[in-house]
């Protein structure tokens, strides 16, 4: 019985729903505030994403004529659920809940499920703007997949040296290895991979310079062109929570060694690190550069960022 209660607690509160939503909204609010401050303006209050979400919940949901009603309403819920499940599988430093039941490949595919749910939602809404939006979202997914995979393999090889198989995909092993011999970020051969991962985070989430899928100025909110009311609010919430999940993934992959005694303290450290990461990877590029064109995103990720990841993969493979 206690395990059931613990599971409900895990799913609903700590690494699950409540924690992710609160931290995600916090990160999103902070991001908008920092971008505003960098543009020399006051910027919205910190709780602005929370107000946006609540406002969307209060609005009316219109189902367009060409839309597939069932899929149209189910897509955001499915995407959000898959994202929270991925968050459950990511260990918060030493406090790992379900990370033994899934590894890096599963998390990679869960994040793909989140992307696919947005695409299916756009397809089900039947609007041409959504059609262009989903095609751009898919190109963005293809472009960040290669560096993400190279980083994953590099980390797997580096952390797997000790294991009998020589490689590992399991996050638990990666965290233990980092606890044993120092965070991966401080191994010089992994610096390019960490840099590549920093680039992958904004494209995965769809933050400003790489938000070709939801370019509101070009294709009228792209994938969310036909969404109004709670589904649109849920999609925006997924967008915010994804910021936290990607930062958490980076922290585990490259800073996994940090582990204070208690889970609460670990969670706090994770939040602080996520704030720093959000600033570095999402706020600064958002304030500084303009939105990329579609083929520029693809070319940038498959040449520059993939090159960085490949360098560290080769270095790791040579045993350095």
């Amino acid at each position: 019985m206690t395990t059931l209660l613990w599971t409900i607690f895990h799913v609903l509160v700590f690494p699950g729903l409540l924690f992710c939503v609160v931290v995600g909204l916090l990160l999103a609010g902070l991001d908008r505030k920092l971008v505003a401050r960098m543009q020399n303006r006051v910027g919205p209050p910190l709780l602005q994403p929370w107000y946006d979400f609540l406002k969307c919940c209060g609005k009316e949901t219109i189902i367009p004529r060409h839309a597939r009603r069932g899929l149209f309403l189910a897509a955001p819920v499915l995407g959000f659920a898959a994202l929270i499940t991925a968050a459950l599988f990511i260990p918060v430093f030493s406090y790992s809940v379900y990370s033994t039941s899934a590894d890096l490949v599963v998390i990679l595919y869960l994040l793909t499920v989140v992307g696919v749910s947005m695409i299916v939602g756009a397809a089900a809404s039947g609007s041409p703007f959504a059609g262009v939006g989903l095609s751009r979202e898919m190109v963005a997914m293809i472009s960040y997949e290669l560096p993400f995979v190279l980083v994953m393999l590099a980390v797997g090889r580096m952390a797997g040296v000790g294991t009998p198989l020589g490689v590992t995909f399991s996050l638990q092993a990666i965290v233990d290895w980092q606890a044993a011999n120092g965070n991966l970020l401080f191994h010089w051969s992994m610096i390019p991979a960490a840099l590549a991962m920093l680039f992958v985070i904004p494209c995965e989430i769809g933050m400003h310079p790489f938000d070709i899928a939801e370019a509101e100025t070009e294709i009228c909110e792209g994938t969310l062109a036909e969404y109004s009311g709670p589904p649109a609010g849920l999609f925006r919430l997924t967008h915010c929570v994804k910021m936290y999940v990607m930062c958490a993934l980076f922290c585990v992959l490259f800073l996994g060694g940090i582990s204070t005694g208690y889970a609460a303290l670990d969670a706090l450290v994770m939040v602080v690190l996520s704030v720093v990461l959000t600033f570095v990877t999402m706020s600064v590029p958002h304030a500084v550069c303009a939105r990329f064109k579609v083929e520029q995103v693809f070319k940038f990720y498959w040449t520059v960022v993939a090159g960085l990841a490949l360098i560290s993969l080769i270095l790791v493979w040579l045993g350095l």
């Binding site: 799913v11 729903l17 499940t85 459950l88 379900y98 039941s101």
Partner: peptide, 18 residues
């Protein structure tokens, strides 16, 4: 295997979160 994948656990979590 170098990783772990229990689909039933994954499905339970997905359903409970939904």
């Amino acid at each position: 295997l170098s990783g772990a994948w229990q689909p039933v656990m994954w499905l339970l979590l997905l359903i409970s979160v939904t």
